[in-house]
Design a protein around this nucleic acid. Structure first.
Lengths: 202, 202
DNA sequence: GAATTAATTGAACGTTCGTTTTATTAATTT
DNA sequence: AAATTAATAAAACGAACGTTCAATTAATTC
């Protein structure tokens, strides 16, 4: 056999991405074999190489897409200038809420992006870390502005930014949709904790 | 050749553990081969199997030891009953300080214990998660007591416990000894943030 | 100093890995 | 309807994997 009836490059590529996110987040990147991936997609291993030249480039594509989506998501959620929400406290609230919702909606790719950095070559690792640093810079600038306006009490902006990122990303480690708390309640809770953490009066 | 001059089982086992922690934390468990490990220890691959029956049991041993050490460490650092430090705020301060110092002193095994859970069989995974839950229970009980005494303002004890654990464990992701902040400063900073997070007045 | 035990080597086992090559068929274009 | 391009299958490559086994030597015990 060769080309199968109804086969379509775009659909296959999307199916590969989905299956890869599922398998990598469950088994880990190194533990997932290309044969396993092909089998889950319903295709022969060789077909994968039409879409991704190597296993590592597949991982890189998934991670880059995740980070770019995250940055775009924040760009759209960020309060517009001149509004009341554009003050530091409003921006921080928007940042936390967007971050929580984005990650809860993308558990698989979040796991992949957070746990598989070691499998990237130095060059590709740097590109992902640059995107990450760009995103974290948004948080740092919010904290710096709040410190300047004396609405936040922060000892060290960089350290606080890392602490907040770790805390709010950690939600995907324990949160399960079937648990007692809803996504809204979780987001509200993290918002409150973040505001207390930076010493903002609510 | 066979047994080498000066060879000693205890030393070899310790060397295997050290090398494994180093390699796994750098490459990941699946990416580390037993041949690589043997080479770093300075021994033939077959020699590893005198100390650990399988690769997975080696990983399990490293993780269990890490968690048991963490629990022992907290047992020794925990304030004694009847002292002023035994109030919730003092216990929380001790918990955060011990946690930060313990993890900063054991970067490799922390990475292994946090990132490689997926490589454990169901049974062994459960044993590690039980130890983890036992440790987290200590934090939850501190938060519960502080809530009862009205010295902490906490919406949800479990959620807050997870948030704090994620935040303070995250220190090893970014902290490098050569950076501007000392271990003492970092610990003090996390202590302040934690107290603010639970709404304690300092 | 002989017998025993501990520690390790060297070689090999079958399996699986990521990837490549070639052939074949479906869909699209001309 | 013929020619071309896109999508896949089938088979194979050499390399690396975790692990086992038998042989060998160092250290210890008697």
């Amino acid at each position: 056999m060769a080309r199968t009836t109804g086969s379509d490059g775009e659909k296959t590529e999307a199916a590969i991405r989905d299956a890869a996110l599922d398998l990598i987040s469950r088994l880990g990147f190194e533990a997932m074999s290309m044969r396993q991936l092909a089998s889950q997609v319903g295709v022969q291993p060789a077909a994968l190489y039409r879409y991704f030249p190597t296993k590592e480039e597949l991982l890189f594509a998934l991670m880059r897409e995740h980070m770019e989506n995250l940055i775009v998501s924040w760009g759209e959620a960020r309060p517009v200038e001149g509004t009341i929400e554009e003050k530091p406290a409003g921006r921080l609230a928007a940042f936390v809420e967007n971050h929580i919702r984005f990650h809860l909606a993308r558990r698989n790719s979040t796991h992949v992006s957070n746990l598989e950095l070691r499998s990237l070559s130095e060059k590709r690792l740097k590109r992902i870390l640059d995107l990450r640093s760009q995103y974290e810079g948004e948080l740092r600038s919010i904290l710096t502005d709040g410190q300047r306006d004396r609405v936040f009490q922060i000892d060290d902006v960089s350290l606080t930014a890392m602490a907040i990122i770790q805390m709010i990303t950690g939600v995907i480690v324990w949160f399960r949709p079937e648990l007692r708390l809803s996504e809204d309640e979780v987001a509200a809770n993290y918002h409150t904790m973040t505001m207390r953490l930076v010493g903002a009066v609510m």
